[in-house]
Design a protein around this nucleic acid. Structure first.
Lengths: 341, 341
DNA sequence: CTGAAAGCGCTTACAG
DNA sequence: CTGAAAGCGCTTACAG
């Protein structure tokens, strides 16, 4: 007895065994009852629940993860937290996953494939129950880490036809083409494209811009201003000035994101350039504040909340063992026409 | 033998035992060597490391957490991700914690004490190695959950003199008074205060505003416009119009946060109200875009990055068993005077 | 400095 | 439907 006591570590925590003793059943029955495994007598379930409640029992996630080889955390990888787009996405994901008993674990890649790889290396050993990643652009190693881990994975924000792939997104190309077409419809002919960051989705929007202008016979590569710098309001202001200086005959600008578009609009205010009189300005994503600009910014409302919600819901299904075939959901975006075009 | 095999679960993972076999030492020696516990022969450490490397061994965090009663995750609770302030804070925290072997686990409370409580209830059983929380305003239950968990905790963004408390922040009251004083120094006499959210830190800034104006004999409660709504550019625009309408003789506005200040500035642009000619506008936090407004916004640069860095560093020390006495670090803010005042 | 034993708190795999 | 045994992969607590 003394021996036994001396060996004991005892964390002080109320355990499954405590509940079992209180409910007068075996530990495994408590385990099953609490996990809602049917095949437990309803009466026993009730007894177990009451005992657990009374003792304030909370399962130990570490023990659970070790025994079952799976935690209840879901790794969510996004490029940036400073882009409101991804904050909206994360909020939606949380609203679906958390009440379902899963905890989102946010990882920020900073648009850096090496960082993404490091995050995967760090978190995959934690045996997350699921994985939510942004887009398809990653290192081959990262791809393999994901595949070999066997963790269910849903890709967000882009779509793909590749077999076995799960994704929820929308066509960045079509959306980019749509806003460009809107500018054409407004009678604009010298339409510039200003972009920052140059991540895959930005480049897809560029592709939409090009296709649309080529179809109209109005594509001119000199009207593209692509900066690898991080997107920001300040950068938008600089790009606006640069375009006007280099291409004085430009009559519209499609900014790849609302933050640089807002910067462009503010630069126009500062320089006294009439918008849309002298030049039309359009953005992308419909971020906070775009409706308050002077003039209010025309943009594309992207369904990031819906992407997060549908993506998390799809993952939920996968984690529960369903839909192994691969499936891609394509959502709709919407043109938001305001006074800047 | 058959018996033994039938019982085996075998996750396929390379384990400590595998490394021990390869290095021809006992598992416990591998454990100690890999955790850099000194008291292991350097030669053995080398052998173990080589074997671990060769086998691609990665420790299982769940097993580790179960055995040691402590994970390597650090729970970080912030009110909102849509306020750039907290994104900067989180980035700084990550930069300190991650390389030190800890993984930040972000929880968003939405300024809701009940949500914070739920997050603590959910994550504390995971036995985080440390806890980083925003401010001191929380439910008594939340406070007890934290204390009873025994998890080291550092409070961010505010300061306190309470004994045993660890915190890193700055004086919101002083900062609020400083920007108000700046407006007085500019010759303004009818200075309004516009606020949203009304969280504790916002109210502390209000307190600074009041103290400063009372000292000057210029305090007038009718010049305070406090909205419980979430802070946003659109709300700022509305507050701006409302103040001008209700108090036509106002000659300056101190907005409690840059986003509503930006909204106020945009409203001034739209309405053709000269800033600072007719009215001066000041913000708080120096968020992205404030320097691009027309005119550029005068504001207070708050040291959130430094708060995150110093807070995480302090927590690191606590997690390693140091500094149990309680300690508060007070950081500096800086007035950023631009053309709006 | 090194190791054999026990334990952390669950779930899986077998049996009945 | 229920349970006794074993195991998940580590670290703690003792010994030497």
């Amino acid at each position: 007895m003394t021996e036994a006591h001396r060996r004991r570590r005892n964390s002080g925590r109320t355990t499954l065994a405590d509940v079992a003793r209180a409910a007068e059943v075996s530990p495994i029955t408590v385990s099953r009852a609490l996990r809602q495994e049917r095949s437990v007598d309803p009466a026993l379930v009730e007894r177990v629940r009451a005992a657990a409640e009374r003792l304030g029992y909370v399962p130990d996630p570490a023990a659970r993860a070790l025994a079952s080889q799976r935690s209840t955390q879901v790794l969510v990888l996004v490029p940036l937290l400073s882009n409101a787009l991804f904050v909206d996405l994360l909020e939606a994901v949380h609203r679906v996953l958390f009440p379902a008993g899963y905890q989102p674990l946010i990882g920020v890649t900073h648009y850096d494939t090496a960082e993404e790889e490091l995050l995967l290396r760090t978190y995959l050993p934690h045996r997350p129950a699921g994985l939510l990643v942004t887009g398809f652009d990653r290192s081959e190693t990262a791809r393999q880490l994901i595949t070999r881990s066997g963790v269910p994975c849903v890709h967000l924000m882009e779509t793909s036809d590749a077999p076995g792939v799960h994704c929820v997104g929308f066509s960045q190309i079509d959306a980019g083409a749509a806003i460009t077409q809107h500018l054409l419809d407004r009678g604009r002919r010298r339409i510039a494209f200003c972009a920052a960051q140059l991540d895959p989705r930005t480049l897809q929007r560029a592709e939409g811009y090009r296709r649309c202008l080529r179809a109209a016979g109005l594509y001119d590569p000199r009207l593209e201003l692509l900066s690898p710098e991080r997107s920001s309001i300040a950068l938008g202001a600089r790009l606006f000035e640069e375009v006007l200086q280099r291409q004085p005959e430009v009559d519209a600008i499609f900014f790849c994101n609302d933050d640089i578009a807002q910067g462009g609009l503010l630069a126009a205010n500062r320089l006294g350039v009439p918008v849309p009189g002298r030049i039309a300005v359009a953005g992308f994503n419909d971020l906070a504040g775009s409706d308050q600009m002077v003039p209010p910014l025309t943009t594309v409302r992207t369904p990031r909340g819906e992407v997060g919600q549908a993506g998390a819901t799809m993952l939920l299904e996968l984690m529960r063992g369903g839909g192994a075939e691969g499936r891609c959901v394509r959502l709709d975006y919407a043109l938001v026409v305001r006074e800047s075009t």
